[in-house]
C-alpha cells in the first residue's frame, strides 16, 4: 500500500514538472502582457489577434506553409511508404529485404541536423533552388520511414492467402491491392499518416537548412527567428496552446484506434 502511494506520488510529481511550462504558457495566453509572467487582466485579445492575422501576417503565412507542407508530405509519405511496406514485406530476396529495412532506418537513427545538412548538400550540389518543393521532398524523406514502420505490423497480421486467392480468381494486382490489401492495412496507414503529419509540422532542424532564400518560413523556423530577435511575439502563446490541444486530440485518436485494433486482434 505504502509502495503504491509513493509510486503514484512520484508519477504525479514528474507529470506536474513535465507539464508546468505548457500550463504556464496556456494560462498566460489569456492576458495581453508583452512579457510572459506579467498578468494584466483576463483577455481573449491574443487569440483574436492570432486569427485576424492583421498583426502578424508573417506568422499566419508560416502557419499556412506548415499546414500545407504537412498535409502534402504526409499524403505522399503514406502512399510511398505503404507501397514500399508491401514490397518489403513480400520480398523473397533476404538481402534486398535487409537493404530496404536498413535504408529505411537511416533517417530514423540520424539526428535531424545530419538529415538536414545532407539534404541541403544534395540540393546545392545538383543546383536546385530550394523552396516549397525541396522542403516538401525533405519532409517526405524523414516521414516515410515511420509510415513503413506503422504499416508493417498490419501486413504481418494479414492472411497472406487472400491476395493470392483474388489473383487466382482473375483480379488484377491493382484491383486486389484496392479490394484486399488496403482495407486490411488501413488502420496502419491512417496512424502512419497522422504520425507523418505530426512529424512534419514539428520539424525544425531539417527545415531550417532547406528553406532556401526566398523567405519561406514554417512555424518552427518562424519561432526560432522570432526568439533570436529577442522579444517573443505574444501571439505565440495562444498558438502554442492551440497546437498542444490539437496534438492531444490527434494522439487520443491514434491511441484509441490502436487500442481498438489490439482488442480486435486478441478477441
Amino acid at each position: 500500500m505504502m509502495k503504491k502511494f509513493f509510486a503514484q506520488a512520484y508519477l504525479w510529481l514528474i507529470l506536474i514538472l513535465l507539464y508546468a511550462p505548457i500550463v504556464i504558457i496556456a494560462v498566460f495566453s489569456f492576458t495581453e502582457a508583452k512579457v510572459l509572467g506579467n498578468w494584466t487582466g483576463f483577455s481573449f485579445n491574443l487569440y483574436t489577434n492570432l486569427f485576424e492575422g492583421g498583426v502578424n501576417n508573417s506568422l499566419m503565412k508560416a502557419i499556412g506553409n506548415t499546414a500545407i507542407i504537412g498535409i502534402v508530405s504526409a499524403t505522399f509519405s503514406t502512399i510511398l511508404g505503404t507501397i514500399a511496406a508491401i514490397g518489403i514485406f513480400n520480398a523473397q530476396n533476404k538481402r534486398y529485404k535487409m537493404v530496404m529495412t536498413s535504408l529505411n532506418n537511416i533517417p530514423i537513427l540520424n539526428p535531424d541536423i545530419i538529415t538536414g545538412i545532407s539534404l541541403f548538400l544534395l540540393f546545392v550540389s545538383i543546383g536546385v533552388t530550394q523552396g516549397y518543393t525541396t522542403l516538401t521532398l525533405c519532409h517526405i524523406t524523414f516521414c516515410t520511414p515511420y509510415v513503413v514502420l506503422s504499416v508493417m505490423p498490419r501486413l504481418q497480421q494479414m492472411n497472406p492467402n487472400t491476395y493470392e486467392a483474388a489473383l487466382d480468381l482473375g483480379a488484377t494486382p491493382f484491383y486486389a491491392l484496392r479490394k484486399i490489401i488496403i482495407p486490411q492495412i488501413k488502420s496502419g496507414m491512417i496512424s502512419g499518416f497522422i504520425l507523418a503529419f505530426t512529424l512534419s509540422i514539428d520539424d525544425f532542424e531539417v527545415s531550417v537548412f532547406n528553406l532556401g532564400t526566398n523567405g519561406l518560413e514554417t512555424l518552427s523556423t518562424f519561432i526560432y527567428a522570432d526568439s533570436r530577435k529577442g522579444g517573443l511575439t505574444p501571439e505565440l502563446r495562444p498558438l502554442s496552446t492551440i497546437i498542444f490541444l490539437t496534438v492531444l486530440i490527434l494522439l487520443l485518436i491514434v491511441n484509441y484506434r490502436s487500442a481498438k485494433a489490439n482488442k480486435k486482434q486478441t478477441a
Binding site: 511550462p21 505548457i22 504556464i24 504558457i25 505530426t198 509540422i201 514539428d202 525544425f204 512555424l219 518552427s220 519561432i223 526560432y224 526568439s227 517573443l232 505565440l236 502554442s240 497546437i243 498542444f244 496534438v247 490527434l250 494522439l251
Partner: peptide, 11 residues
C-alpha cells in the same frame, strides 16, 4: 509530440 521549440520556450 509538441514542437521542440514550443516546449523549450515554455521551459
Amino acid at each position: 509530440w509538441v514542437n521542440v521549440l514550443v516546449r523549450t520556450l515554455a521551459t
